[in-house]
Simulated assay, not measured.
Amino acid sequence: MNQVPLTDAPRMHAAVLALGGNLGDRLENLQAAVDSLADTPSLTISWISPVYETAPLLEEGAEPQDDYLNAVVGVVTALSPDMLLMRAQAIEEALGRVRETRWGARTIDIDIVQVDDLVSAAAELTLPHPRAAQRAFVLAPWHDVRPDDVLAGAGPIAELLAGLGGAEAQGAVRREDLELVLS
């Protein structure tokens, strides 16, 4: 006699999240985001990249901003991509993120870079992140931890980073004096 399970095991997803911020205590805000992710039910942090510092990407005529601190985090989660997005936005809000202008200064930004090898052009969540392949502040920290990973639909992150001329050519500087920890 075959037994039917009472519940199906949730599908687990491997996701890559990019963290960044340039307001307030930047390192403290990144660490608070890591801590909040670690406190999320059905989510486990697999790895955390080194911290990088980068100049802001400014549109023509935009107000000057302070430099950003950036890091990349790998997670395994039972949350669907939409639920992961909702959790990321809730963490941003809890840490004082205010969305006034596109690419404006912020306490924290949590971008979902990719989930598994999903490709989606949904208005709410485009996967992989549409500009990740051109962002050294995503590729360099990710490469430091997982150099053989592939950005879905774009290619190996090592090749993408080399195509940008490397981290330094894009102004992404690894901060050896700063570290994010899993507490």
Rank of each mutant, 00 (worst) to 15 (best):
D149V: 05
V98M: 14
D111N: 12
G96L: 05
S80R: 09
Q31A: 13
R106G: 01
L37S: 15
V51S: 07
L37H: 15
L164N: 12
E92D: 09
R97S: 06
A88F: 03
D116I: 04
V34S: 02
D66R: 07
V51I: 06
L127E: 09
E100T: 09
P64K: 12
F137H: 03
I91D: 07
E28A: 15
T126C: 06
V115L: 09
V113F: 13
P128G: 04
S120A: 14
I48W: 00
V119E: 14
A78C: 11
S42K: 08
A133Q: 14
I110E: 10
T54F: 11
E100D: 10
D117V: 06
D35E: 15
A94R: 13
T126K: 06
P41Q: 12
D116G: 05
T77E: 09
G104D: 06
A152D: 13
V98F: 07
L164Y: 11
V98Y: 10
A94G: 12
D111H: 13
E53H: 03
L125C: 03
L139R: 00
Q65L: 01
L30C: 11
T126R: 11
V51L: 02
E28D: 13
D82T: 06
A140P: 10
A88E: 08
L23M: 09
D39Q: 14
V119A: 15
D144Q: 08
A105H: 12
R26G: 07
S120F: 10
L58W: 15
N70W: 05
E93C: 08
I48F: 01
M83A: 15
L139N: 00
D25K: 08
H129V: 12
F137D: 01
P147L: 13
E63Y: 08
V72Q: 05
L58G: 07
P130W: 10
L37D: 14
G21D: 05
D82F: 04
A122M: 01
E159F: 03
E63F: 06
V115P: 04
V150Q: 11
G61A: 07
H129L: 12
T126Q: 10
G61K: 10
D67F: 06
L125T: 08
G74N: 12
L85N: 09
L30W: 10
D35T: 15
D39F: 00
G153M: 01
A94H: 10
S42R: 14
V115I: 13
A133N: 05
Y52Q: 00
L95R: 07
L151N: 01
Q65G: 05
R87H: 10
L151R: 03
G96Y: 10
R26A: 13
E63T: 14
N29W: 08
Q134P: 05
D39S: 15
L58P: 06
A55C: 14
A105N: 12
A140H: 02
A136W: 09
V119W: 00
N29K: 14
A55L: 13
L84A: 05
A133F: 10
D25Q: 11
V73S: 00
V138Q: 06
